[in-house]
Design a protein around this nucleic acid. Structure first.
Lengths: 230, 230
DNA sequence: CGCGGCTTTGATGTTCATCAAGTAAAGTGG
DNA sequence: CCACTTTACTTGATGAACATCAAAGCCGCG
């Protein structure tokens, strides 16, 4: 993990998202309460049970939010990308994290002292509303996706996750899976073996091509149908 | 549905929960932007897709939050009781409800004009923080419970839901189930037949007594064990 | 009284997890 | 850099857990 100190928050694309109604002077003092950290792929950003001292968000990269079940088994809650407020779930209601977070790709995280943010909320009502909005969307989306997946059969789930990476994350039909087969299983609640089996089925049915972690979706229409009816 | 207009919010037990940092004068003007409604058991309080105009909470009673899947099948997200902020999930991030809400027991709901609440958030920073806290807890809890249930087997799920009603809702070992077998199935993601089958198993194993909707838990220890290992 | 929804039980079938065993790939230490 | 170990991936065979289907009794309600 590498720490960066330069501060140009005023120009950051992020400002539009949530700090839109925060004044230039407020942004200035935020710089004094902020630091950035760069994590390499695979590194753990947050450990379940860690104390919460900062409000933070993902400036760049891809992470997984997960919960340890056994020593060798996790349960993945969701995958978050740039501009997602990954730590948001528990930040305002508890002193310690309920979930762990790890980098799936090299990632840059911005940390702002939680006390500073809480003060900003108190002083700047519009910022408070913007934050409520963002938080509401974040958790609502996690719930929606989990409900959605839980009612699909295994083929539907695999179709869903392929379309998720293709559509929501990489926006292309050819992409490298950022997670292992085991992690896919942990994310959509099935066994590793069945993830592999169904990927092979899809390959045999000419809907996708597979080369290790590289996936090409050759028949997105059929995949969408399987996702919907599944 | 019966509408009530009397206003004694200042004395309401609710005030402690979330309006603790709202001044007497603010509470006074809140009364002018508030109304209460009483729903009979079975009545629908919110319909998926309805426009959101109010911030509301459950003052008294028991409700289910659910999503329509097919015409005769729902997916129940959670059961909320007095002091729960049932409509909170979507209120601040969308204009229309994503879920339906229906009364499982006679229930009293307090509605406050959303615009008024948003103004209060802008003016009263501590109230904004209190709201963030509450909202964070609410959604976090829903996610936690759903994750928890999804990794249990069917016996574990039934044990869980019996302990939930016994411990969290009614705080006694003898209680009337507020929902049908079908609704239990929709809540913990299984079929009605298996809900019944496993309840019968538990009865044969002398862990519970069943008389229609009335349940008596005679061996809570064993039930807890089944819930944990399941 | 009869209809529809809820409950119950049994029989059957399918989906999916588990187990086993082997190959490939990726770290790790000498 | 190579032997070694561990972790990831893959396929097949088996069995268990669970859904589905069917049939009948029950209860509340118009």
């Amino acid at each position: 993990m590498e720490i960066v100190n330069a501060c140009n928050c005023e120009l950051c694309v992020f400002r539009k998202l949530i700090f839109n109604n925060v004044s230039a002077s407020e942004m200035g003092s935020m710089c004094e309460n902020k630091h950035e950290a760069i994590y390499k792929k695979g590194q753990v950003i947050v450990n379940e049970g860690d104390e919460i001292n900062d409000f933070f968000y993902l400036r760049e990269g891809l992470v997984k939010i997960y919960k340890r079940v056994h020593n060798d088994k996790d349960q993945i809650l969701s995958i978050a990308k740039s501009f997602d407020f990954v730590g948001m779930l528990t930040v305002f209601s508890d002193t310690h994290y309920h979930y762990s977070i790890a980098a799936l790709e090299d990632s840059t995280v911005c940390y702002v002292k939680l006390d500073f943010i809480k003060n900003l909320i108190k002083k700047n009502g519009q910022f408070a509303l913007d934050l409520l909005d963002k938080m509401s969307k974040t958790s609502d989306d996690i719930i929606k996706v989990k409900l959605d997946i839980s009612k699909k059969n295994l083929r539907g789930r695999i179709a869903y996750i392929l379309l998720f990476f293709s559509g929501k994350i990489y926006e292309t039909n050819v992409f490298d899976l950022p997670i292992s087969r085991k992690e896919i299983a942990e994310l959509i609640d099935m066994t590793t073996e069945n993830v592999i089996r169904i990927l092979s089925e899809f390959r045999k049915d000419k809907m996708i091509r597979i080369n290790g972690k590289t996936i090409e979706i050759t028949n997105p229409e059929m995949l969408k149908k399987i996702c919907e009816v599944g």
